[in-house]
Amino acid sequence: MAGAKSAPSRKAPEERIRARNEAKILKAAVELFSRKGFDGTRTAEIAEACGLPKANIYYYFSTKEAIYTTLIERLLQGWDKALEHITAERDPREALSAYVAAKLDYSRRHVVESRFFANEMLRGGGFLSRAQRRHMQEITRERVRVVEGWVRDGKIMPIDPNHFFIMLWATTQFYADFAEVAAVTLEKGRLSLTDYEAAQKTIVKVILSGCLPAS
C-alpha cells in the first residue's frame, strides 16, 4: 500500500516539468509559425527560441507536424468554447452578448495564436486536416440551426445564419489579427482592456439592433 501511495508523488514533478516544457515549446513555435509559416520554420529554430535542446523537442512532440496540430487543436477548442454560449435555450440577446464577449476575450489573450491561424489560412489553409475542417463545419451547422430556430420563433429577424456567423467571427477576430490597425484608429500605442470592453458593447449593440424584432 505504501508503494501505491508514493507513485503519484513521484509522478507529479514529472508532469509539471512536461507541462512547463510543452508550454515553452508551443509558445516559441506559434510565434515562429505566425511569422514564417509551417514550411519556413525549422525544429532547430523552435528549440533555440524556447531554450531547450532539439532532442527535448522530439521527446515531447514526435514531429514538427505534431506541434502544429496541437496548436490548431487548442485554437479551435478556444473558439468552440465561445460558441457554447449560443444555444437554443438562451435568449438571443443574452447568447450573442456572451459569445461576443468570450470571442473578444480570447482574441485579446491569444493574439499570436489567432494571427498564426489567419496567416496560414491566407497561405491556403492546407494545414487543416479533413477532421478539423469537418469539425469546423459541424459546429457551425449546430449554431446555424440555433439561429434558424430563433428566426422561426420570431426571436430575431430573418437572416442568413451562415453569413451572420461569418460576420460575427470576422468582427471579433479583427481585434486579434489587426490589433495595430485598431490601435492606430483609436490613436493609441496598443489596445487596452477598456478598448476591448468598448468594442464588445459596440458590436453587441449594432448586431442586436440589426437582428432583434422591433418591440
Rank of each mutant, 00 (worst) to 15 (best):
A179H: 05
D105W: 13
A44E: 09
L128T: 14
H85L: 13
K201F: 05
G125M: 11
D105P: 04
Y175A: 00
S209L: 04
K54V: 14
F117N: 01
Y106G: 00
P13K: 15
I46S: 00
L52Y: 14
Y59D: 03
G3A: 07
K54I: 15
L128C: 11
M121E: 05
T194G: 02
T87Y: 11
A131Y: 12
N162R: 15
G124H: 14
E73S: 00
F61Q: 01
K64W: 06
N56M: 07
S6D: 03
S129P: 07
K5V: 07
Y58K: 06
D39L: 11
T69G: 02
K54Q: 15
V30W: 10
E48S: 06
V144L: 01
M157C: 09
D160W: 08
T69N: 14
T194P: 00
T69I: 14
I57T: 02
T70D: 03
R16S: 00
M1C: 06
E89P: 00
G154E: 09
T140E: 00
F117A: 03
E94W: 14
A170P: 00
G126W: 10
G40M: 14
E84G: 07
W79D: 06
Q132V: 15
F33M: 03
T172F: 11
A101G: 00
R10S: 02
T202V: 06
T70I: 03
A98C: 03
S209W: 09
I17N: 04
E180T: 09
A182W: 11
